[in-house]
Design a binder for these strands. Sequence first.
DNA 1: TTCTAGTTGAGAAAGATTCTCAATTAGATA
DNA 2: TATCTAATTGAGAATCTTTCTCAACTAGAA
Lengths: 133, 133
Amino acid sequence: MPAQLLQSHQLKATKQRRELLLLMQREHRPRTAEQLQTKLKDVSLATVYRMMDDFLQAGLVNRVDLGHGHTHFEYADPKHHHHHLICDDCGRIEDVRVPNETKIVLSVGRKAKFRVRRHALEFFGLCSRCQTA
Amino acid sequence: MPAQLLQSHQLKATKQRRELLLLMQREHRPRTAEQLQTKLKDVSLATVYRMMDDFLQAGLVNRVDLGHGHTHFEYADPKHHHHHLICDDCGRIEDVRVPNETKIVLSVGRKAKFRVRRHALEFFGLCSRCQTA
DNA sequence: TTCTAGTTGAGAAAGATTCTCAATTAGATA
DNA sequence: TATCTAATTGAGAATCTTTCTCAACTAGAA
């Protein structure tokens, strides 16, 4: 599956790319380049970053800013578009869907005559556990 | 004005803080720590970062991730809450307001039992000029 | 005016990300 | 299947952003 997906985006299906894409599909969570490299074993960190650029360009992954100092990446599954709730206290990350999101994004773009290609949205605050604690 | 605003947030009104806050209020655009330091002249970069932490904590500024490698900061004017449209092509940044945003944020938090304290939202794509070019 | 906790400057240190360049490889072609 | 070439990769150096350290300084309380 990763091989065809890569080729359909004009990306050579190298061993490294197939492994990284498969890993991200399985994790389906925001991960840093370093976290991904550790699980891949035989891929250099520079290559992870380079592949991530390619994947971002192709729209296969999303960049996620969790407010820590380093970028996270997440597989962009079109069937499960979502955003994140990030707990300031315990750091837990929950997925969340925003109702009528497509409609909202379209309307914002239309009004500003701006062709929206992608958007980033994260919510920060306190998760249910940390509110009571 | 900056002095009172700082004190109302339990922050000592030092010369550096007053100048930075005033500058950010005047610019009301996303700026990097370095850009701000350049305009302040007699404040060290480390101090700009430290003050930014304090201001973020106090809710006086927002962190903005424009997708370039470095963080931008913007004065958080409660009267003019907005988000950004960032052009992938020319880099231009436009402000945008999202209709019914408060309602949406509240509903997302309620469903997930998550107390939302703040959120980050940016739109990326092509501005009106770059669509035709 | 004095005192003290909080703040700042300067540069070192720490991290994250990108760059360089020689070696390797996917995939097209014969 | 073998060959060829442009694209990709590894390894480490380089760069860039952000944080840390610690001695000197200062706002605001007494």
